[in-house]
Structure formats: C-alpha cells, structure tokens
Amino acid sequence: MERVEATSELQSRLSSLSFSSFPGVTSNQCDTSPVESLQNTDLSKSQPQTDDQADMEEIEEDSGQRSEGNEEAPAEPAPGEAGEENNSTGSCQLSTEMKTQMPPLEPPTTWTSATLKELKAKLRTEPDSVVTVYRGDIMTVHVPTVPEAKKVSWEFATDGYDIGFGIYFDWTPVTNRSITVHISESSDDEDEEEELEGPVSNGDVEKGSKTQTSSNLAEILPVYRQDSHLSVFGGSHDFPGEGTYMLKFDNSYSLWRNKTLYYRVYYSA
C-alpha cells in the first residue's frame, strides 16, 4: 500500500510541473511541431544571397547583353577597302582596253650569214658601230618609226662569245626621231650563275631579260642567246604603226665576260 501511495504522489507532482519551471525556456518556442516547421521552411527566403553570387549574375547579364549587341551590329568593312577594290578593277579594265586596241604584231624576218669577217671589217670603219656590252649589262637600242620608211633592219656579230638578243615595240607616240642607246644593269638574282662559254643551241631562253610590264609594250622576238660569234645574225620587221622599236642586246647572264658587239640598224622602204 505504501508503494502505491508513493507512485501516485510522484505522478501528481510530475503533472503539476510546466515549462515555466525551467528558466530560459518558454512555451511559445514549442507551439509549432517539428513537422510543421519543416513544411513551412522556404530555403530561398531563409538563405541570404552572398556577394559572390550577385557578382556572378551581373557578369552573366552583361555578357548576354554584349553578345546580343554583337549579333545585331553587322561588321563594317575597313576604310578604304571598297575604294581599293574599285580602283584595281578600273585599272585592270583600262589595261585590257589598251591591249585590245593594239593590232597583233607579225613575227620578224630573220637570217644568218657566214660573212662574219666582212661585216666586222666594215663596221670598224663606222662610228658607234662597235661597242662593249659589259658583264651584267643590257644595251637597248631605241629605233623610232619614221614616215619615209616602211621597215627596220638590223645585223650584228660578236667576238669570241654569244649574246642575248630580243626585240620589243613601244606603241607610245613618237616624240623624238633619233636613234638612241640605253645601258642598264640587271637586278636578276640569277646573275650569280657563271656563264657557260662555248656554242649554245638556239632556243635557250635568256634568263637575264624579261618582258616589260608596260601596257604599251609588245613583244616581237623574245630574248634568246644567239651564237653571234659564229655567224652574222640579221633580220627586218615591217612597221606595225607609229612607235619605237627596242632592240635588246643582253649580257646580264654573264658574270665574268664583257662582249664586243658589232651592230648596225637601218631603215628600208
């Protein structure tokens, strides 16, 4: 009986206890059950946004706006590109028109002669008919057309070694009727190759001389190495119109040898 009474007395004391009996704990803190607290929790609202996250979002927004701006703005051509293209097109058309106005040139009439000694003996008595074309040089004889003639003729020979020879025609209107001679040095990189002495077969292209780039210049005979030390080389060409012949004696391929040239140029009816 005493145990029963002690147990009932203990239960009555426990039931009389409340949360207010413990300091620092209030009954309001336990009004909501743990399940309800979890259900009402909003993580997006409860967790504050950090500064790093905000900076990342701003960078993404800026990059998106820039990419949209680049897509909307088409690339503009650099200044001067359109003008240069139009100028190059116009110059090409002008050059084409000038070339189409030029009539085709007939090939020259050429020959060789064994009278080598006779020609040299004759030209030695004439002034300016014997010249030295130095190594690496090109001698060009400018022969303008004249109203009293219909063709130009030439003959030449050399001592000991061959020489390159070619003919071009300049359609520029004639302003000077005198025959002139011009000497020029070759800037070709192939000048360093030593000349191959001795007979050379006709048809070897002369490397030191190249066709001029002038739109008024036409090629009559490309420059070839001629065995002018073995025989006389001669030829003639009918005037295609008003202009100036350019007879090229080319020694630009020779690294060591100067060439003694005997030549004459004359008009024929």
Score class of each variant (00 low, 15 high):
243 G>F: 01
178 S>N: 15
50 T>Q: 07
109 T>W: 10
6 A>D: 12
224 Y>C: 02
256 W>Q: 09
228 S>H: 03
198 G>M: 09
123 L>C: 06
112 T>V: 13
32 T>L: 01
267 Y>E: 06
136 G>T: 00
205 V>M: 03
174 V>Q: 11
251 N>V: 08
154 W>K: 09
24 G>V: 00
44 S>N: 14
66 R>I: 14
184 S>K: 14
231 S>N: 05
142 H>T: 07
231 S>A: 13
43 L>S: 14
163 I>R: 07
109 T>V: 15
98 M>V: 12
137 D>R: 12
20 S>I: 00
39 Q>L: 15
87 N>A: 14
179 I>G: 01
210 K>S: 13
223 V>M: 03
1 M>C: 03
198 G>L: 06
107 P>Y: 00
192 E>D: 07
77 P>W: 03
64 G>W: 06
254 S>W: 01
15 S>R: 14
72 E>F: 07
138 I>H: 14
189 D>A: 09
137 D>L: 04
184 S>L: 08
224 Y>N: 09
67 S>A: 15
121 A>H: 09
15 S>F: 04
104 P>I: 10
226 Q>V: 08
40 N>D: 08
200 V>C: 07
215 S>W: 02
266 Y>W: 15
132 T>W: 00
137 D>T: 11
76 E>K: 12
5 E>Y: 04
30 C>V: 15
63 S>R: 10
220 I>R: 03
134 Y>S: 11
13 R>C: 01
159 D>V: 13
139 M>H: 01
174 V>G: 08
24 G>A: 11
31 D>K: 06
169 F>R: 03
189 D>P: 06
33 S>D: 13
36 E>C: 02
27 S>K: 04
23 P>T: 14
236 S>T: 06
33 S>M: 10
105 L>F: 07
229 H>I: 01
50 T>G: 14
60 E>K: 15
38 L>P: 00
147 P>Q: 05
211 T>W: 02
217 L>W: 01
223 V>Y: 03
109 T>R: 13
50 T>W: 04
186 S>Q: 09
257 R>I: 06
47 Q>C: 11
38 L>S: 13
107 P>N: 05
149 A>Y: 14
238 D>G: 02
204 D>L: 07
177 R>L: 13
